[in-house]
């Protein structure tokens, strides 16, 4: 049933990475992205790979799942690879097809970019695999809260994300119900050309919007009744606290970053 859908890609477990402060995990992801971009030669990817493997092992994530995460991206990967392969200019020709040619330089660049993309995706999914949506929004809110000084609505954004997560299953259920109700009146959502199908969505979308607005009104009232008045003076049940493991992880990440930079320099 629709109600069993889970969100994000959170993989529940009690590993040390799961228990880390979400703020640190977000910071580490940023550090990892820097790390990936510092890897400017193929050799420099060895420390990056080692780092990722270490992280995955400590998070006790099945390798299969990491690979599954890349699957939806395979088209983009192949596409950029081919694009780089044929359109980067270079001296050492490996293959000449007449209308296009592959050079050693273009092959190197293509592999490098593909690897970067791959690692970026796996690194970000590490965050979503090991952090449930609520701590994730909590972490984001608190990392962004210094920006409140420049009127950036960090709390409001996080609250919006939480509410969205809460209501997605409810709205999915409702979509299913309205779709069936209109089908029972002979509506047809499946056949016809694009315009016809777009038109067929009206009987679905209008009730859905009406209901979403009604829910929003109800919820706003319920929140006010429970003394919600914005982020000011608000405390949180889940107190985020950095512990030793967070600092160790930070140190390890910095060490790997240094290693990547050194390797890149040496093999440039």
């Amino acid at each position: 049933m629709l109600e069993n859908i889970t969100f994000g890609q959170y993989y529940p477990s009690d590993s040390i990475v799961h228990r880390m402060d979400p703020r640190m995990k977000i910071l580490l992801l940023i550090l990892f992205i820097v790390n990936v971009f510092c890897a400017s030669t193929l050799y420099a990817f060895i420390p990056v790979l080692l780092y990722l493997v270490t992280a995955v092992r400590y998070a006790r994530l099945p390798a299969k799942m990491m690979l599954k995460g890349i699957k939806p991206l395979r088209l983009i990967l192949i596409f950029t690879f081919i694009l780089n392969l044929f359109f980067i200019q270079g001296q050492t020709v490996l293959l000449d097809l007449g209308f296009a040619r592959v050079t050693l330089e273009s092959l190197k660049t293509a592999v490098l970019y593909a690897l970067r993309l791959l690692f970026l995706v796996m690194g970000s999914s590490m965050l979503t695999y090991t952090t449930a949506p609520v701590p994730l929004t909590d972490g984001l809110e608190r990392l962004l809260s210094p920006l409140k000084a420049v009127r950036f609505p960090a709390h409001e954004m996080a609250m919006m994300m939480t509410i969205a997560l809460r209501f997605i299953p409810t709205l999915l259920e409702e979509t299913d119900k309205i779709m069936k109700a209109q089908s029972a009146r002979g509506a047809d959502f499946e056949t016809g050309n694009l315009i016809r199908r777009a038109k067929a969505m009206v009987p679905l979308l209008v009730p859905l919007f009406v209901s979403a607005f009604r829910r929003a009104g109800d919820l706003a009232m319920a929140m006010e009744a429970r003394c919600y008045h914005g982020g000011e003076g608000r405390t949180r049940l889940h107190v985020l606290k950095m512990t030793r493991k967070d600092y160790i992880a930070l140190a390890v990440s910095l060490a790997f970053l240094a290693l990547t930079i050194v390797t890149a320099r040496l093999t440039a």
């Binding site: 609520v134 809460r166 919820l219 319920a222 003394c227 008045h229 608000r234 049940l237």
Partner: peptide, 19 residues
């Protein structure tokens, strides 16, 4: 459906206290 805010029961009960 329209009065629960959080994605976990415990967090929802905390909502008022947090406010």
């Amino acid at each position: 459906d329209n009065q629960l805010v959080a994605t976990v029961v415990r967090d929802d009960v905390a909502f008022g206290l947090e406010n």
